[in-house]
């Protein structure tokens, strides 16, 4: 369990983390989302006691990280997979960690096996690809078999196979009942894995809600209906509780009803439909709109990406996050 209370980190006049408060509970994957420069890595470093907060506090299992002796069996983390000494073998890279963390030497071989690096255990890490370093990093985090895992941008720069592997590992860790706290700037990535999302922008918390809710609200599961008889259909749909927006040439955009219900209603009344389809605004677009104001450096083009419907969702979510 990770608890942040008003956590703040300033570098001179720049506020990297601004009064962050949230709790990461046990046993699920929490996505920590935000654009580059939103303060995700700084927050991770503050949690792990590597950087000192300017204000507020953060505890891991009720205790400040810096007060712990050898927390490998409590928390495992992967911050930067490239932070290895290129001249040391994978085995020794894990061995020094195990020794410092009070972990049995035999665990090193088990972990190398687990992340699929047993064959290259004696090879120097300098020759490893990013994917292999990522595996080694996951191995480090798993040495103490900890109930809490922190991963900072674990899929960055990985090939599809590497991404798939990381995803399956995270899911497996969560299934084993571990808490997985994972940061990303890719919404689509989180959609696949996270149960809960925390969205930050410019160091501030923008949203804190279950993934299902985020998806539901942001994806605006509206149904697109095209019918030559659209005008006749509209009141019926409204009577059923749907919200209908009229477009041009018999196009309707319906929210609050699913495609099946709309199809049945049209069928009963003999209204011909030429198109009926469920539409989901992209999560990515919703996320970009959500963090729109908080992106520090942005090319002009990206701001146009969100649709008007997504913008509405964003307001809803922002209100949610603020309440």
């Amino acid at each position: 369990m990770i608890e942040l209370r008003g956590l703040t980190k300033r570098y001179g006049t720049t506020t990297a983390v601004d009064n962050l408060s949230f709790t990461v509970g046990a046993g699920h994957i929490t996505g920590f989302l935000g654009p580059n420069g939103a303060g995700k890595t700084t927050t991770m470093r503050l949690i792990l006691g590597l950087d000192n907060p300017t204000g507020g506090s953060v505890t891991v299992n009720g205790e400040s990280y810096r007060d712990k002796r050898a927390p490998m069996h409590e928390v495992g983390a992967l911050i930067d997979p490239s932070a290895v000494h290129g001249g040391r073998s994978a085995y020794y890279h894990l061995l020094w960690q195990a020794q410092a963390g009070g972990i049995h030497k035999s665990r090193v071989d088990d972990v190398l096996d687990m992340v699929g690096l047993a064959d290259v255990a004696g090879k120097k890490v300098g020759g490893f690809s990013l994917g292999m370093r990522q595996r080694l990093g996951i191995g480090s985090a798993m040495l103490g078999d900890p109930p809490v895992l922190l991963f900072d941008e674990p899929v960055n720069g990985l090939d599809p196979e590497g991404i798939q592997w990381i995803r399956s590992m995270m899911k497996r860790f969560a299934e084993e009942g571990r808490t997985v706290f994972v940061s990303s700037h890719l919404m689509s990535e989180m959609e696949q894995t996270a149960d809960h999302v925390l969205v930050v922008g410019r160091g501030q918390l923008i949203a804190d809600l279950p993934m299902s809710e985020f998806t539901q609200r942001s994806a605006l599961t509206h149904v697109r209906v095209v019918s030559p008889d659209a005008a006749r259909l509209t009141p019926h749909l409204e009577a059923m509780g749907g919200v209908v927006k009229n477009g041009t040439r018999g196009e309707l955009s319906v929210t609050g009803l699913d495609a099946g219900a709309i199809g049945a209603a049209a069928f009963e009344r003999g209204i011909r439909l030429s198109e009926l389809s469920s539409q989901r605004a992209s999560l990515e677009a919703a996320f970009m709109e959500l963090t729109h104001d908080s992106v520090e450096y942005r090319a002009n083009e990206t701001s146009k990406a969100g649709s008007s419907t997504a913008e509405e969702t964003v307001r809803e979510l922002t209100a949610e996050g603020a309440s």
């Binding site: 687990m114 798993m142 040495l143 497996r172």
Partner: peptide, 27 residues
């Protein structure tokens, strides 16, 4: 398997200064 009973992994919850020396020597 990733889950191994903890007692088989953890040698010590506070490994102390000797372990620290050992680790730095390994480095």
């Amino acid at each position: 398997a990733t889950t191994v009973p903890a007692q088989h992994i953890i040698a010590s919850r506070d490994p102390g200064f000797g372990a620290q020396l050992q680790s730095e020597w390994t480095k």
